[in-house]
Design a protein around this nucleic acid. Structure first.
Length: 611
DNA sequence: GCAAGGTC
């Protein structure tokens, strides 16, 4: 018997289906000389400090540098404390028995660094010695799976990938565990003050933004607005320049050639510029973009949206949710017309689904090269039946986005009218000429600029129009807004982009901070630690969070660059570089940050008393 | 009591 092991049950089921294996056993599926089993993500994790003899949180234990890391079965929290997850233990027993029985293992965990780690940790933990080959596919259509099985790779081809994954895992443990204990101990050991490669830069971003706003000094400025009348159609134009003082603006106001001042047609149209602007449809959703949209539209937290999506996925209504790709391959695209047709009876989207059957579909979201482990989130076409309100809302966002993504461009006309009337004024307006993808939700255009006219009348250069009203407007500059979960998720995805060092920027270009699967839990961790809180949709640091930020803000652990450095080195390891060098660097950094934090936490005593 | 990573 050959054993195929997947990262999760859904993939194992897909693979078994392609082979025609249908005999469902406990924890695996059997048939045609194969068994198909699965993990549930990481079943094993690096053992906690006490497994190396580091009991309690004590300064003399630091830095904790295990000579050789151990693996431990994944734990869960119950009312009796932290215990081995029984479901995980059971599945490991199933896998162990299948390992013993099989002649060969085919590794079908996700095609990436963590997928490799998930398998290897199981393989080494169970002390398995059987040979294994690797299935490496990025699409789970029947054709892609068959092709992948014809092209199985030698397992050893992925040894360096495992090395990089293993280094990532141990490095996060070393830096995170030691930094957390060091800061907690030096602050009096009264509370858990956690730090980590991802959570601490995230906290820093939230704190920085908050402080920037606190320190922001608004600048007041003035504009002059005039109202013009073209055959009964009123529109507004704003002074071409801003004025520093009210007096200046009032002087300009007095010079306006308006009707009340005795000028029947004092508005001279000096220029009319009209431009057609094509707006392509948005890309399909990945997890992050969907979390952002659900936060904006419905106020759901990233964690809530992930949990709702997971339930929809388990009821087979949507495809795999924890994806970082907003694209699909050509194979999936081939099934899209039939999928869209299934929504022709849909109450809200039926008309658009019907319409899409009559036009050529937009292929902006079709790019096999940009599909990584998983493709973009799609509905499956299964009948949804009755759904709770929140599930329905998220499901509709997935279906609606599919229709938008394959829809046509939205064509807008933007018009800029220049007016002279004592001073120079400008009127801006945007008119949607062909709604295209925007007809799916018919939401108001969120890109509309402040003070823009809903519609502008047709006017010609050198027309003279009556100025029917005028006013001075007092404005002030605004700081950047506080982070919401939506804007924070976006910032986590893109935060490597402004790193100055080109190599580090490149190393982070596809990743950002954290991963799609972990970002929601990072936010929840910061809340659980009482580092940040939610105020309406905003994420605001607490006193404790700000105090921790003050201690670490100038250290590497508070900056996204640390991830950039690691990613660069991990990629080198994947292509064959020495693991020892990187491990030595991490050990050295662990010692440094531990020493620094042991010395730096004293100032936190006071704040923790108050908190 | 602690990281970040994956998933039911």
């Amino acid at each position: 018997m050959k054993l195929v092991i997947a990262e999760k049950p859904s993939v194992a089921r897909e693979l078994a289906k392609v082979f025609g294996a249908t005999n469902k056993k406990g924890g695996y599926i059997e048939g045609k000389g194969y068994s198909f089993t699965w993990a549930f993500g990481h079943l094993l994790q690096l053992a906690p400090p006490q497994d190396y003899g580091f009991y309690g949180w004590k300064q003399q234990n630091l830095p904790m540098l295990p000579h050789k890391f151990k693996l431990a079965v994944r734990k869960i929290k119950t009312k009796d404390g932290v215990v081995e997850d029984p479901a995980v233990r059971k599945q490991l027993d199933v896998i162990k028995a299948l390992f013993d029985e099989c002649t060969e293992i085919i590794v079908a965990t996700d095609a990436g660094r963590e997928g490799e780690l998930i398998f290897r940790y199981i393989y080494y933990y169970l002390k398995c010695k059987k040979p294994f080959r690797r299935l490496w596919i990025s699409s789970q259509t029947d054709a892609a799976i068959k092709e992948g099985f014809r092209n199985l790779k030698p397992g050893t081809d992925y040894d360096t990938l495992f090395n990089s994954a293993h280094c990532r895992s141990e490095s996060d443990w070393l830096v995170g565990m030691n930094a957390t204990q060091a800061l907690s101990i030096s602050a009096g050991n009264k509370a858990v003050l956690s730090l980590g490669r991802v959570q601490t830069p995230t906290l820093a971003m939230i704190c920085q933004r908050y402080l920037e706003i606190q320190q922001f000094v608004p600048q007041i400025y003035f504009q002059v607005a005039i109202q013009l009348n073209k055959d009964g159609h009123l529109f507004r134009a704003i002074s071409a320049v801003n004025y520093k003082s009210k007096e200046e603006a009032e002087t300009v106001l007095g010079q306006v050639l308006d009707v009340a001042a005795g000028h029947p047609t004092g508005g001279h149209i000096t220029k009319v510029e009209a431009k057609a602007k094509k707006e392509p449809p948005p890309l399909l959703h990945d997890l992050s973009s969907l979390q952002q949209e659900a936060n904006k539209k419905k106020g759901y937290t990233a964690d809530q949206t992930l949990s709702i999506l997971q339930q929809l996925y388990e009821s087979k209504l949507v495809t795999y949710p924890r994806t970082g790709s907003r694209y699909i391959g050509d194979d999936i695209f081939a099934g899209i017309p039939a999928l869209i047709a299934k929504y022709q009876q849909h109450q809200q989207f039926g008309k658009q689904a019907e319409y899409l059957a009559t036009v050529k579909l937009n292929k902006r979201s079709v790019n096999a090269k940009k599909v990584t482990d998983h493709h973009a989130i799609l509905p499956t076409g299964e009948n949804a039946g009755y759904l709770s309100e929140d599930k329905q809302a998220v499901y509709d966002m997935v279906v609606g986005r599919m229709l938008e993504a394959f829809h046509q461009e939205c064509i807008k006309e933007t018009t800029k009218i220049s007016v002279s009337s004592g001073a120079d004024f400008i009127a801006n307006g945007t008119v949607i000429q062909s709604a295209g993808w925007r007809s799916v939700f018919n939401d108001p255009d969120d890109e509309k600029k402040e003070g823009e006219n809903a519609s502008l009348p047709k006017v010609l250069k050198d027309e003279y129009l009556p100025v029917t009203n005028k006013a001075v407007l007092e404005k002030q500059t605004k700081p950047k807004p506080l982070y919401t979960e939506a804007t924070l998720l976006k910032a986590l995805e893109t935060c490597g982009k402004d790193i100055e060092d080109e190599e580090l920027r490149y190393a982070m270009k596809d990743s950002g901070l954290g991963t799609p699967a972990t970002r929601a839990s990072i936010i929840e961790t910061l809340i659980k630690r009482d580092y940040i809180g939610r105020e309406k949709k905003n994420l605001v640091p607490t006193k404790k969070g700000l105090a921790v930020y003050e201690v670490v803000k100038d250290k590497k652990i508070a900056h996204a660059e640390l991830t950039g450095q690691w990613e660069k080195r991990l990629e080198e390891i994947r292509s064959g570089a020495s693991v020892q060098d990187f491990k030595a660097e991490i050990t050295a950094y662990t010692k440094t940050i531990t020493q620094e934090l042991l010395a730096a936490g004293q100032g936190l005593h006071q704040v923790l008393q108050e908190a």
